[in-house]
Simulated assay, not measured.
Amino acid sequence: MDRLSEFLDRNVFNATVFFDGQFCGDNHFSGASALGQLHVVRSGKVVVHHRDRPSLHIDEPAVLFYPRGLQHHLVVPPGSEVNLVCANLALESEEAHAPTLMLPDCLHVRLADAPLLHCTLELLDSEARGQLGGRRLMLNRLCEVLVVQLLRHAHSTGQLEQDALAGLSDPGLARVLEAVQRQPAQPWPLDALARMAGMSRSKFASHFHKQVGMPPAEYIAQRRMKLARQLLRQRLPVEQVAIRVGYQTQPAFSRAFITRFGVSPSAWMRSRPDQPGIAA
């Protein structure tokens, strides 16, 4: 069985459609709950703002998939409207950890780039326009099918990172990867990670490298730097970023940042043209 099927065998997204039709104005999602969202843009234009990433300008049929709660803001330009189907997603999982942390924060897929979605979206469009019995149930189930197709598309196009694929298929590694993502500033000695995965130190180091493609220490360093860049985009002071990603001093963090990216954190931040994309 492939890794994606193993994940979907243990984890099911249950969809509840809360809107379908013509939409104008704006709608804010706080990201405070564990619920994810699925937004199907059937036609029209909409801008999606995020706190720590560039805004998305959508002007063609597309699907947005948020596997877990993430703050975002849908805004329709003045004088325009967009045809949407929107659903909340609740994960029913056999795992005690949060497997959605292995997935990207947001997947944005244009219909033009994913022809395998066409049939499902045509049926979704037909159900959304009609008034047949069982309409709401059909919309919910079609949204759940879309989630599977989106994950398949992300898998086949390389949008799921190696650590995500490993975490989706290996519960022991998933516990480790989730812990590092939740608390990247922790020291995370190899012994502690091995115990978390339920393996010996040597077996864990070998298994981790084989499945994730790098040693645990390198993976942790990469996750810290990924988080650091997100925080720098939010214009947090460098000294605060250093502490939040696990460095005891700003100089130590700056040296590690320069080694990896070739510029200092301050210089990198000044070079960024994008500003945090969140509407008031």
Rank of each mutant, 00 (worst) to 15 (best):
V75N: 04
L91H: 05
H72Q: 06
E94G: 11
H97Y: 13
L74C: 08
A96P: 02
C106P: 09
L101C: 06
T100P: 05
L70M: 13
A98E: 13
H97W: 10
L103W: 02
H72F: 00
E94A: 15
H108S: 04
E122C: 12
V82F: 01
A112P: 03
P115M: 07
E94Q: 13
D113F: 00
L111H: 10
E94N: 14
H108M: 03
D105K: 12
L117I: 07
H108K: 06
V85M: 09
P104T: 01
P78E: 12
A96W: 05
L107R: 04
T120L: 09
L117K: 03
S93P: 04
A96L: 15
E122T: 07
R68W: 02
G79F: 09
T120H: 07
V82W: 02
P115C: 03
H72S: 05
P99N: 12
L123C: 13
H73K: 01
C106W: 11
C106T: 15
L89I: 11
L74D: 15
S80H: 11
S93R: 08
A98I: 03
N83H: 13
L121D: 08
R68C: 05
L121I: 12
E81V: 12
N88E: 10
V109W: 03
L70F: 10
E92V: 15
M102H: 00
L101A: 12
L89W: 02
A96E: 14
V85L: 15
L91E: 00
A114V: 10
P78L: 04
E81C: 14
L117A: 06
L117Y: 03
A114F: 08
S80D: 13
L123K: 11
P104C: 00
D105L: 07
D113N: 07
L116D: 13
E94P: 03
V82T: 10
Q71Y: 03
T100Y: 00
P115R: 04
P99A: 13
L74N: 15
N88R: 14
H97L: 11
L91V: 08
L91G: 00
A90C: 07
M102D: 07
E122R: 09
L116E: 14
A90D: 09
V85N: 10
A87L: 05
E95P: 00
R110Q: 11
V82K: 05
H108I: 04
P67A: 03
G79S: 08
E95I: 01
H72E: 01
V76A: 08
L74T: 09
A114T: 09
E94W: 05
E94I: 10
V109M: 01
P104H: 00
L123V: 10
L89H: 04
L107N: 09
T100Q: 05
E94L: 12
H73R: 05
E92F: 15
G69A: 08
V82Q: 01
L121G: 09
L89M: 09
H118E: 08
L124I: 07
E122I: 05
T120R: 07
N83L: 11
C119S: 11
A87Y: 05
A90I: 03
N83E: 13
V85K: 06
G69P: 10
L123H: 11
A90L: 11
